[in-house]
Design a binder for these strands. Structure first.
Ligand SMILES: [Zn+2]
Ligand SMILES: [Zn+2]
Ligand SMILES: [Zn+2]
Ligand SMILES: [Zn+2]
Lengths: 171, 171
DNA sequence: TCATGAATGCAACATTATAACATCGAAGAT
DNA sequence: ATCTTCGATGTTATAATGTTGCATTCATGA
């Protein structure tokens, strides 16, 4: 099997072909919306693109700033509605521990978000680990708890930042 | 082995002896602070008690209201400083997906928080599951990711609420 | 062309959290 | 006992994040 710029499980590398990430995200978004009958309007597409500026989760008001710089009129509801839509289509995820939003790597398949987030460079990697999901489900079953939604966010230091400098750990 | 009002893994029951929970929490807090040399002042003790009003995570401004009703002068920094202290001592946890705070069941042992949270009654149960923690750690190791902090929050419906009424699932 | 409903613009507001600085008070040093 | 010091608390203002309600626009189909 051909290996793309990064495999499913890799942490996004510093020098990777991010244009490919963006292309793939847009293509996936178009397909997902077509299948669900939802309308991927220009505004929503624009916001999705801004989120995909990088693999680092970005705040709603940062997105607002970016939108404004792009010449759009933009007030908070503008961005929050777009975020609601994109999140509803599974095209982005909210990172609860950061109040921020990040693009989904594989919106075609339904999944819970599991994230590794680097405190230094901000980059977030999305996992889709069946073993973690299975263990959590099993524990919920043990407790007779009906699971609706899982938030799993690991904060730490990514491979790239570990190589760069082991000394200056935080902030 | 004797079974206390609830075992470590149980979801807090509707009719359990909550006074015992509170007593235990206060005793644990006193011990933890004594060992760490931190000062569990009257204000901090009061806030910890208010958090232990129930097993449902409570917001900072709700705590403020409670404090005010108790006759304390209270502004946001009052409560946030107390929350920082209690959280620093491991006596409470912040629930990221709710912007709320809940008492820790076992502050004497260091641990990451893993929570099952009921959308209906608000009750949160804290897990300390080694298998979940181990799997997450293993996946981080696979990804060459240095894990600092884990946020794991499961939203769903608790055993009690499931028994009450399976129909009205949400909201 | 017109009716309809979804999407967006816009103003105000609600909620959550922090910064900056003044004051108080416990605990040890003199 | 008094002083000193530093952590804890009080107070005001403000930042950051998110929502409500209503007017307007726009795509879509009758
Ligand atoms: Zn990329
Ligand atoms: Zn990094
Ligand atoms: Zn209890
Ligand atoms: Zn419940």
């Amino acid at each position: 099997m051909a290996r793309s710029t990064h495999t499913d499980r890799d942490f996004p590398q510093a020098g990777h072909d991010h244009a490919a990430c963006i292309d793939e995200a847009l293509a996936a978004a178009a397909e997902v919306c077509r299948l669900s009958g939802a309308r991927l309007t220009e505004l929503r597409r624009q916001v999705l693109l801004l989120i995909w500026d990088s693999h680092a989760p970005v705040g709603a008001y940062q997105l607002l700033d970016k939108l404004s710089r792009d010449g759009r009129t933009a007030a908070p509801p503008t961005i929050y509605r777009a975020l609601d839509f994109l999140s509803g289509q599974g095209l982005i995820h909210r990172i609860e521990s950061l109040n921020a939003y990040v693009g989904c790597r594989d919106p075609r398949r339904p999944h819970v978000g599991q994230f590794l987030i680097c405190r230094e460079c901000g980059t977030a990697a999305e996992l889709e680990d069946a073993e973690i999901a299975g263990t959590v489900r099993a524990r919920c079953a043990d407790a007779d708890f009906e699971m609706h939604h899982l938030t799993l966010e690991v904060l730490g230091r990514c491979p790239g930042c570990r190589r760069t400098g082991p000394g200056q750990a935080d902030r």
